[in-house]
Amino acid sequence: MPRYLLLKHYRGGPEPHHPFPPMDQWAPEDVEAHMSFLRNIRDSLKETGEYVDGQALTPENTWVRWGGPDAAPVTTEGPHPETSDLVAGWYMVDVDSHERALEIAAEVSSEPGPGGEPLYEWIAVRELMTE
């Protein structure tokens, strides 16, 4: 069965369908609803046997490359352009089809935001190569 990464982003991707403020500025009950929605997604993916992994990333992003012989690695000094993609985390799912991966991603994207309205967040869907 194919495996997919469903990537959530801090920023980047297509124009937001529905802009929204950062979560710490939402009403407390909306924060709760959002978090419990995501917990349920994880639980239901486990129940259907499709869940492989889910991880979150901190917003820190350092670019690094080899500095050459006898030189320290070269890193970029932040901050990066506000338009660059910044991945926030992922679900890895093991599903029957590409369609099913899109279906799950769309469900994630319907997560409730301020006032309980869906966020319509863009989710990137990437297939893993098999070994």
């Binding site: 979560m23 710490d24 407390p28 909306d30 924060v31 709760e32 978090m35």
Partner: peptide, 8 residues
């Protein structure tokens, strides 16, 4: 995040 939302 919850604490921030609660304080706000």
């Amino acid at each position: 995040v919850r604490q921030a939302a609660r304080a706000r």
